[in-house]
Amino acid sequence: MSPFTNLEPFLFWTIACITGGCAIACVVTHNIVRSATWLLFALAGTSGIFFLLGADLVGAIQLLVYVGGTMILVVFGVMLTAQGPFISMRTSSGEWAVSVAAGLLLLSVLSVAISKIGKPTPPSGSTVAQYAPKTTLAEGMTKEGETNEVASKSPYSMAIGQGFLGVGVGPAHKETVNGKETVVRASYLLPFEIVSVHLLVALIGAAYLARAKRRKEAAV
């Protein structure tokens, strides 16, 4: 057993407390830029959780897209719409009480649901950010007669990339092709293309919306 295994609880609790605490602070604070800052910490903590789970690609993309892109957008939005130097809009305490009560109710329902699931153990050889090479993933990515070092070294990043390019890496299911029953793995080329088109649409839409003319009295 690798000694890294013992690190997991410590790392998990540290990162989880930071993430959860920052998420709560994000809700509680009135100042919108502070709220965005707490959200930044929560997002960074979430990417830490992803790294802890061995999904380093997802963690890095999370940092790149959220922290480097979305958060900047949010703060830009705050700056462009702020009348005072540090805006804060207060919510009445009645609304607070109702929302927090509803939130706690939702959390308790979710907690009960979570406690009902079994306790699945991770696949063998699981350590923090050190996953054992999985032959199931590497197969189909290697040409015959050559050992793919990259694939065995980074099963997830490689497989995700291949999946987006149309190589079957998803869950296997049986399919009848030409009267012969073969095992087919799902690939993710179509979602990838849809997301690309979606991004383009969002880009054009955002540019169109933001181009609308300012009313004169709004330009403070």
């Binding site: 830029v33 800052t37 930044l40 960074a44 380093d56 690609l57 890095a60 993309i61 940092l63 790149l64 922290v67 480097g68 892109g69 958060m71 900047i72 703060v75 700056m79 990259v150 070294k153 980074s154 990043s157 490689m158």
Partner: peptide, 23 residues
């Protein structure tokens, strides 16, 4: 395995600090 992506990602978070400094 994705060191270069990781580096770009974390360096892009530097700009948020700069914005906070400015704001």
């Amino acid at each position: 395995n994705i060191a270069i992506l990781f580096m770009l990602a974390v360096m892009s978070s530097e700009v948020f600090g700069i914005i906070l400094i400015g704001y």
